[in-house]
Design a protein around this nucleic acid. Structure first.
Length: 878
DNA sequence: CACTCCCGCCAATTA
DNA sequence: TAATTGGCGGGAGTG
C-alpha cells in the first residue's frame, strides 16, 4: 500500500528539473522505503490486472525488509553521491518522470514498462554517473532486484552489459561495485583500439577462409577474449574491481556487448545494423548461419542495445536499404578519444567530439574480401608495429605470436565480408546494377543515409558498396584475367602497386576496403603476395607512409615508417594474377610520411607521395598515386610546384593540420568494390569519399597531384573503366586547402573527353549509373580526354571530407568509364608516383609511357590496354 | 506479419 | 548440494 501511495507521490516529486532526483531518492530511501519510489512507478498500474502484478505486489511487500536493511546501508550513499557530484544525468531522471507520467496515462502494465531499457534507466538512476571517487557504491543484486521489482535475471542482463563497459564490477557474489562513467572513455578507447586491432588485423591477414571458418566455429568467444577481452575486462579500475570477475569465463553477454560496442567504434558511420552485428558476432558464420542462432543473437543484441541506449551511448535508427529498412543503432556516445592513448580523459566522455576522433577511428583501411574468395591479407602489422600507438595494449606480443587471434579475426572479418558481400550481391542483383547508387542517395540523415549493409558495421562496406555496385552492372562481361600484366600478384594475394597505394586483390567478388588500412599491412602483405618486382624503390617510398598510418596512426604518421613501405610498394597491383578477379587497388594513404622525400623518380613523384601520406588514410592518396601514374606527366608540372613545396613543407604542414595521427586516422577511406559477377571485365575505380583525410593536412601545397584514393579494378572484359569518386569529393567543399576535397577537386578531373561515351558520373549524391555500359563505345584512345586531373586540392580536400559522412551518404560519385582495351589491369608496378602530375591511366592507356614511365619507364604496362588516362589535376592536360 | 524482447527454464559455475 | 550466473529460445506484445 505504501508503495502505491508513494508511487503517486513520488513520481511526481522527483521532478526532473531539479536535482530532484537525488533528493528524492534520498528522501525516500532514507526513511523507509528507500526504494519505493522507483518501484512505485511500475507497480501502480500493474497491480490490478495482471497476474504478475499480484506477484509483484507480493514481492514488493515482502521486499521491504530486505530493502530497508540494505538500502539504509548503501542506497543512500549512491544517492548522495549522485547528488553531489555529478552532473547527474538528466536523462535518467527524466526518464523516471516520464515513466511516471506514463503510468498515469496508461495503466496497463504495458510491456514497455517492463522493458529492459526502462529497467536499466531506473537502475542507472539510482547511481550517479560520476560518483565521487572516494566512495564506492556497492550494488546488491537482490536488493536492486527487489527494489526495481524484477527478477534477478533481469538485473544480470543489465549488470553484465554495464560490466562490459566497466561501469560496474563484480565484487563478490551478489555484490557489484558501481564505478560510474569515470572510466567510460578509457574503456571505450580500449575497446576501440581492440576493435581496430581485431578487425584491422583481420583485414590484413586473411587466411583461407575456409580453414578459419572451421576453426573459428569452435572457438568462438574465446578468441576475443584473448586479445581484447581480457584487457578490457581486466583493466581494473582502481576502485572496486574484484578479482572474482576475472575468474568468470567468458560471459557471452559481456563479450557480445564489448564486441558490439567495438563495432560502433570501429565503424565509420557509427551505425550498425542488428543483423550485421549479429552475423559478425556469430562466429560461424557466413552464409550458413543458422537461423535460430541468428535469432538468438539478435535477441541478445536487443538486450544489449537496450542497456546501451539507456546509457545514451547509442540510439535506434533505421537504415533503409534497398529492400527495406532495417533496424540499426547509431553510436551517439563519445567517439574517439582514441587518439591519445595515453590520455584518458577521464570522465568526460566527450573528450573529442570532433570529427577528428572519428577520423582517427576510421583511419585505417580495412579490407575485407568476402565470399568464397578470400580476403587478401596483408600483413598489417609488421610494418605497423612500429607505429603501434594504439595497439600496445592489445598485443603484447610481436606479430607472429598472435596468429590465432589473427585467424580469429580473420575469420570474423571474413564473415563480415561475406555478409556484406551477400548483401551486396543480393542487392545488386535484385536491384540490378544500376540501382546501387540510387540507393545511396541518401538524403539527409546521416543515419539513414547509410547504406544498408555495411554501414553499420564497418564503414567501409557501407558506403562503398552501393557505389560499387554500379560497376557491377557493368560487369557484364566475364572476367577475364586479363592481364597478365606486370603484376605479379600471386595467387590471390593482393598486390600493391609500388608507387601508388593500391592493392590488388585477386579474385574475390567483393572487396571491402575500409579506410584505415594501413599501408603497412598492405605492404607487408603485398610482398608476400608477390611483390614482385615491381616495387620500385621510389614508389615504395610513397607507400610506406601508408604503413605508418595504419595503426597507430599517430605515431606512424611519420616518416619513419615509410621506409618499410617500400616493400609494399613493390607489390603492385597487378591484379591479374588471377583471372578475373578484380583487382582492387587501394590507394594507400600516403600519409605523409616525410620520407616521401623526394624520391627518386622524378622529383615530382616524390612529392606526390608525400601528399598522399598526409592523406594517408584517405584514399586520396591512392588516387593520387594512380593519377600520378597515369597522368603523371601532365600533372607533374603543375604539381611540381606543389610537390616541391610540399616536400619541404609537408612535414610541417601536416603537423599542423593534423596532429598527425588524428588526422590520419580519421579518414579512412573506405572503398568497397563489388565485383559484379561479370565485373571483372571492366576497370573500376572507386574513390572513396571519406577517405580523404581531410584532416590530414594536406596542404595544398602538398597536394600533389592526386591524392585521391582510388580503387581500381580492372576488368578485362569490360572495356570500360568506371570511376567512382566517393562522395567525399563531391562534397561541397570547396577547395579547402586543408584537405577537404572540394568539389573543385572533382572538377578537376578532366573528364571532358570522357563524357560522352564514357560515362562519368559525378555526383554528390550517389549517382548511379547503372549501366555504364560496359563497353563502351568509348574509345579508349580517345583521347585522353579522359584523363582526369585531380587537382591537388582534391586530394586535400579529400581528407577533409571524410568527416561526416561516411561514404554512403551523399557522396558524390564520379564514375568514369574508360575502355580498356586490354584487360590487363594496370599495373603500375613501377609506378612511381612521382610525378607530380597525377595521371590516371587506365591500363590501356598505359600506353603512354609517358606518365608511367616517367617514373621509371620500366613499367611494363604493356598488357594493359589502358587507353584512357585520366588526368587529374587541375587543369592540365587535356 | 515483422519486429522487439520479456520471461523464465535450466545448465554451468560457484560457494 | 544449494545458490548464483547467465545462455537461450518460446512466444507474447506492439506497430
Amino acid at each position: 500500500e505504501n508503495i502505491f501511495d508513494r508511487s503517486r507521490v513520488a513520481p511526481k516529486t522527483p521532478i526532473k528539473n531539479e536535482p530532484i532526483d537525488l533528493s528524492k531518492q534520498k528522501v525516500c530511501t532514507p526513511e523507509r522505503n528507500p526504494i519505493t519510489p522507483v518501484k512505485i512507478i511500475d507497480k501502480p498500474q500493474p497491480d490490478p490486472w495482471t497476474p504478475t502484478a499480484n506477484l509483484k505486489m507480493l514481492v514488493s511487500a515482502a521486499s521491504p525488509d530486505m530493502r530497508d536493511r540494505e538500502k539504509k546501508k548503501e542506497l543512500f550513499r549512491p544517492i548522495e553521491n549522485s547528488e553531489q557530484s555529478d552532473t547527474p544525468d538528466s536523462l535518467q531522471y527524466d526518464i523516471v518522470d516520464d515513466s511516471t507520467v506514463e503510468e498515469f496515462e496508461k495503466q496497463r502494465p504495458s510491456r514497455k514498462q517492463k522493458s529492459l531499457g526502462l529497467l536499466c534507466q531506473k537502475f542507472l538512476a539510482r547511481y550517479p554517473n560520476y560518483p565521487l571517487s572516494t566512495e564506492k557504491t556497492t550494488i546488491s543484486l537482490d536488493e536492486v532486484a527487489s527494489i526495481l521489482g524484477v527478477e534477478r535475471r533481469r538485473i544480470y542482463d543489465i549488470v553484465n552489459v554495464l560490466e562490459s563497459l566497466h561501469l560496474v564490477s563484480r565484487v563478490a557474489k551478489n555484490q557489484y561495485c558501481w564505478h560510474g562513467r569515470h572510466n567510460l572513455s578509457q574503456t571505450l578507447k580500449k575497446l576501440q583500439e581492440a576493435g581496430e586491432l581485431q578487425y584491422g588485423e583481420l583485414m590484413t591477414f586473411q587466411h583461407k577462409e575456409q580453414e578459419l571458418d572451421y576453426k573459428f566455429g569452435e572457438r568462438k568467444k574465446e578468441t576475443l577474449p584473448d586479445s581484447r577481452d581480457s584487457p578490457l575486462l581486466d583493466f581494473s579500475e582502481p576502485d572496486c574491481t574484484s578479482a572474482s570477475a576475472n575468474s568468470r569465463k567468458d560471459k557471452s553477454l559481456r563479450i557480445m556487448s564489448q564486441k558490439f560496442v567495438m563495432l560502433f567504434l570501429v565503424s565509420k558511420t557509427k551505425i550498425v545494423t542488428l543483423d550485421i552485428a549479429a552475423k559478425i558476432l556469430i562466429e560461424e558464420t557466413q552464409d550458413t548461419v543458422d537461423h535460430s542462432k541468428f535469432k538468438t543473437k539478435v535477441r541478445r543484441l536487443y538486450d544489449i542495445a537496450n542497456v546501451l541506449t539507456s546509457l545514451d551511448l547509442i540510439k535506434k535508427v533505421h537504415v533503409t536499404e534497398e529492400r527495406g529498412r532495417k533496424p540499426a543503432f547509431k553510436w551517439i556516445g563519445p567517439v574517439e578519444f582514441s587518439g591519445k592513448t595515453g590520455e584518458l580523459r577521464g570522465h568526460s566522455p566527450t573528450s573529442d567530439p570532433l570529427p577528428e576522433t572519428q577520423r582517427e577511428a576510421c583511419a585505417r583501411y580495412q579490407i575485407c574480401a568476402t565470399g568464397k574468395q578470400r580476403l587478401t591479407r596483408h600483413a598489417s602489422f609488421n610494418g605497423a608495429q612500429p607505429c603501434e600507438g594504439t595497439r600496445r595494449k592489445v598485443n603484447s606480443e610481436p606479430n607472429s605470436p598472435r596468429r590465432e587471434r589473427q585467424d580469429e579475426y580473420c575469420s570474423k572479418m571474413i564473415n563480415l565480408a561475406a555478409v556484406c558481400r551477400q548483401k551486396i550481391e543480393e542487392d545488386t542483383r535484385n536491384s540490378n546494377i544500376t540501382s546501387p547508387f540510387s540507393l545511396l542517395p541518401v538524403p539527409g540523415d546521416s543515419d539513414f543515409c547509410v547504406n544498408p549493409l555495411p554501414q553499420a558495421v564497418f564503414p567501409v562496406v557501407q558506403a562503398e558498396v552501393p557505389s560499387l555496385s554500379l560497376p557491377i552492372g557493368i560487369s557484364s562481361q566475364a572476367p577475364h584475367p586479363s592481364t597478365p600484366a606486370a603484376s605479379k600478384t600471386e595467387d590471390g594475394k593482393p598486390a600493391l602497386v609500388p608507387n601508388q597505394p593500391f592493392l590488388c586483390f585477386p579474385s574475390s567478388s567483393l572487396f571491402m576496403l575500409c579506410g584505415g588500412l594501413q599501408e603497412n599491412n598492405l605492404s607487408e602483405a603485398l610482398p608476400t603476395a608477390g611483390d614482385g618486382g615491381n616495387r620500385s624503390a621510389e614508389a615504395q617510398a610513397a607507400v610506406p607512409p601508408a604503413v605508418c598510418q595504419k595503426r597507430s596512426s599517430h605515431k606512424c604518421t611519420l616518416p619513419s615508417s615509410p621506409v618499410n613501405d617500400e616493400e609494399p610498394a613493390a607489390k603492385k597491383l597487378n591484379m591479374e594474377q588471377s583471372d578475373l578477379p578484380l583487382s582492387l587497388v587501394v590507394p594507400k594513404k600516403p600519409f605523409e610520411s616525410p620520407k616521401a622525400e623526394s624520391t627518386p623518380g622524378s622529383g615530382c613523384p616524390s612529392a606526390v607521395h608525400l601528399e598522399t601520406y598526409h592523406l594517408d588514410l584517405a584514399s586520396p592518396a591512392a588516387l593520387e598515386a594512380e593519377s600520378k601514374e597515369s597522368t603523371k606527366t601532365l600533372d607533374c608540372q603543375e604539381q611540381e610546384k606543389r610537390p616541391q613545396n610540399k616536400d619541404p613543407d609537408e612535414p610541417l604542414p601536416r603537423n599542423e593540420h593534423m596532429p598527425k595521427e588524428n588526422a590520419n586516422q580519421p579518414f579512412q577511406p573506405q572503398y568497397l568494390y563489388v565485383q559484379p559477377t561479370a565485373g571483372l571485365s571492366s576497370f573500376n575505380f572507386l574513390f572513396s569519399a571519406n577517405q580523404a583525410p581531410s584532416a590530414i593536412s594536406l596542404a595544398s601545397n602538398q597536394l600533389p597531384s592526386l591524392s585521391v584514393p582510388c580503387v581500381m579494378v580492372p576488368s578485362a572484359a569490360l572495356a570500360s573503366f568506371p570511376l567512382v569518386c566517393s562522395p567525399s569529393f563531391t562534397s561541397p567543399l570547396s577547395p579547402v586547402p586543408d584537405g577537404s576535397f572540394s568539389a573543385s577537386a572533382s572538377m578537376n578531373f578532366s573528364m571532358s573527353s570522357l563524357a560522352s561515351t564514357t560515362p562519368v558520373f559525378i555526383s554528390t549524391t550517389a549517382v548511379v549509373t547503372p549501366k555504364v555500359s560496359p563497353a563502351p563505345s568509348v574509345d579508349p584512345q580517345q583521347p585522353a580526354h579522359p584523363a582526369l586531373h585531380l587537382s591537388p586540392v582534391l586530394t586535400r580536400s579529400c581528407s577533409a571530407v571524410k568527416l561526416d559522412s561516411p561514404v554512403c551518404v551523399g557522396h558524390p560519385v564520379t564514375l568514369l568509364k574508360l575502355q580498356q582495351p586490354s584487360s590487363a589491369p594496370l599495373t603500375p608496378k613501377s609506378i612511381r608516383p612521382a610525378h607530380h602530375e597525377a595521371f590516371f591511366k587506365t591500363p590501356g592507356s598505359l600506353g603512354d609511357p609517358v606518365a608511367w614511365k616517367k617514373n621509371e619507364g620500366n613499367q611494363t604496362r604493356n598488357a594493359s590496354s589502358v587507353q584512357r588516362r585520366l588526368e587529374i589535376s587541375g587543369t592540365s592536360s587535356d
